[in-house]
Design a protein around this nucleic acid. Structure first.
Lengths: 156, 156
DNA sequence: CTAGTTGCAAATGTTTTGCAGTCTC
DNA sequence: GAGACTGCAAAACATTTGCAACTAG
């Protein structure tokens, strides 16, 4: 069971910062452990948290998420300008998002690219990069196939 | 006078899309022609537009900006997650933003990087990139100097 | 017990929408 | 003159905050 290590990480990080382990925090932490993509809007986090613990309030979820961000447990990202923020557990490796504007899926892309950007800016421009927010909007491989299929004769 | 070419571009693009040239649209277009960085929040666009044409409404500014985006005349960017969207005139070349979290300045960074990302994703992952949103948060060269100065003995 | 947390409700801030009057073409 | 646009007011979202009650340590 990975759940134990999971719970331990949460507890330890909270305690280290002088915070408490509470029901709502456990619920939000669990909500963020999504099998699929793992990019949830606050609405989704609220819904999942309430599954585990009916009564958790939206305001609490916002507060918990802000705390998790501060503690480095979770990461927000603005997948659409103007739209709601999406949340995921903080990954140790730097990555960016590939969002398909057709099916809405969000993939992670891990690689050296972010590090490269960082170094380039530091060396060449004296800019010290702290956080790199990179989101690429486009069509994923599957949707490109679907489009071709649809034209040829109606897949699906 | 660059203003003429400017006005002509606006008129032509609007007409091509079956849209009309109106006072508010002219005002918003002018507002976006900032000498400095050129990254304005909607609030700022409203203020500048009202300078040129008292009475323009916030709602109209939102509608005009959305239209400009659709026509490829303007580009929104979310410089801070959760915060208001910033607008600038659409540039022909792809660029991204370097935002200093100390002084708040926003620089443009033009280069081949965005094109590189695009190609890499297309070739290696079958992902067709349409728009690339890249914002780097950190400290600009000036602020890094200031910090050193402050430590040494209080610049400013 | 005591301070950190929470739920509830109300406030804030941003963006969107409905509609009747206005202005461009 | 017809339909695209605008201003005004109200609505729809997203997020934050104040506060009294609750609870983890």
């Amino acid at each position: 069971m990975e759940d134990d290590a999971d719970a331990r990480e949460l507890t330890a990080t909270l305690r280290a910062g002088g915070h408490r382990l509470t029901g709502p925090r456990r619920a939000v932490w669990a909500a963020l452990a999504v099998d699929g993509d793992g990019h949830l809007t606050v609405d989704e986090v609220v819904a999942r948290s309430q599954d585990a613990r009916p009564g958790v309030d939206r305001a609490t979820v916002y507060r918990v998420l802000a705390l998790f961000e501060e503690l480095g447990l979770a990461r927000p990202s603005q997948l659409d300008a103007g739209g709601p923020v999406h949340w995921e557990r903080a990954h140790p490796d730097e990555h960016f998002h590939l969002r398909c504007t057709r099916c809405g899926s969000v993939e992670h892309h891990v690689g050296t690219l972010v590090a490269t950007i960082r170094e380039h800016l530091d060396d060449g421009h004296g800019f010290r990069a702290d956080t790199v927010e990179l989101t690429v909007h486009g069509h994923c491989a599957t949707c490109r196939d679907d489009e071709r299929g649809t034209v040829r004769g109606g897949v699906r």
